[in-house]
Write a protein that binds this DNA or RNA. Structure first.
Lengths: 174, 174
DNA sequence: CACAAAAAGATGACACGTCAACCTGACGCG
DNA sequence: CGCGTCAGGTTGACGTGTCATCTTTTTGTG
């Protein structure tokens, strides 16, 4: 009798937190992208790449290291850098010491775009998010994030609870 | 002398919360999409659409109403419903009373897919998120989300602070 | 040294979202 | 009635992200 445990649907409070979290992210993403586009013709992804580059010695980084810094998978990075290269924000250079490697170098134009965007970006992040939170809330949020990220990165248990899905009752599917 | 106020960069705590929030979302999104794909061949977006449809009388909704329920813009909805239609998850029907309207109807196959996915979905959301948070934290998060969403939906102040960008110093661009 | 395995990137195919038109039909109003 | 405006939806173009696959080079190991 491999009975399937009845799913533990979310209660009201849990659903509020969950839905809230998600739409909050979507709104923030929208706001940030709008600001960056308007002020400097950049996307949020562009900005994310430009920042570590601008702080790197010589304004350049190995793709590998850049990828680790921003925590992107290599395919995404490669595609995105390709697009940024076409727009003149960065260039690619081969690596002398490792023939597989690739350096990503910030161009002047890329640097200017980032410097143009930066002040408005912080202002947006503050105005739409940070400044709306108390110190305690900031701590709480960071702590939550640490927990969640660790949980998923490490022990994500494929939740392979062998759900045979006796799919009868479907009530609160959230 | 229209001096530009020096940007108020984020301090350590603020940056931790901000970065944490963002990567947390990315991880969660990944985990959820993997589970849905693996268990039922659905994307998170599919699931989001299927839920309200399955709860609607007659398993169908006007595109307009569906869009309001999930808070998507109409273009996104139309595109996505098109893709779901091609995969046999939903069908489109004209609306008799308003010739412009469109009904989106859940198919049996769509319903099955959702019922298959649902238990694992809740389990994932719990395991990777909800169950890691205390009651207080759930409240805090929901409260934060309310604040942020309202701020962006209503008074998003275009932060049009006329930044003439005397872009000299660029240090902590986060 | 030889050779398997791993690392670094690039690439093509495809799903997803957004923006900007665009079309059609409903509605208000003179 | 006639006309302007708006609402509901669709479409095409484009940027983005993921997956799977491939090539080349490095590295570890006998």
């Amino acid at each position: 009798m491999d009975h399937v445990a009845e799913p533990r649907w979310l209660d009201e409070r849990e659903a509020r937190a969950w839905r809230g979290f998600y739409t909050m992210h979507r709104r923030l993403d929208g706001a940030i992208n709008r600001q960056l586009t308007r002020d400097a013709g950049l996307s949020a992804a562009d900005y994310e790449i430009l920042v570590p580059l601008s702080e790197a010695p010589g304004q350049r980084l190995r793709a590998r290291d850049l990828g680790r810094l921003v925590n992107w998978e290599k395919s995404r990075l490669s595609h995105h850098v390709g697009r940024m290269e076409r727009r003149g924000l960065v260039t690619r250079q081969g690596c002398p010491t490792d023939a597989r490697g690739a350096f990503i170098q910030l161009t002047d134009s890329g640097r200017r775009a980032m410097e143009t965007a930066a002040p408005g970006h912080v202002e947006t992040v503050r105005g739409c998010f940070i400044d709306l939170l108390s110190g305690d809330e900031l701590e709480t949020l960071a702590s939550i994030a640490d927990r969640v990220i660790q949980r998923i990165d490490e022990g994500a248990p494929q939740d392979a609870t062998d759900t045979d899905c006796g799919g009868k009752s479907t009530q609160r599917l959230r």
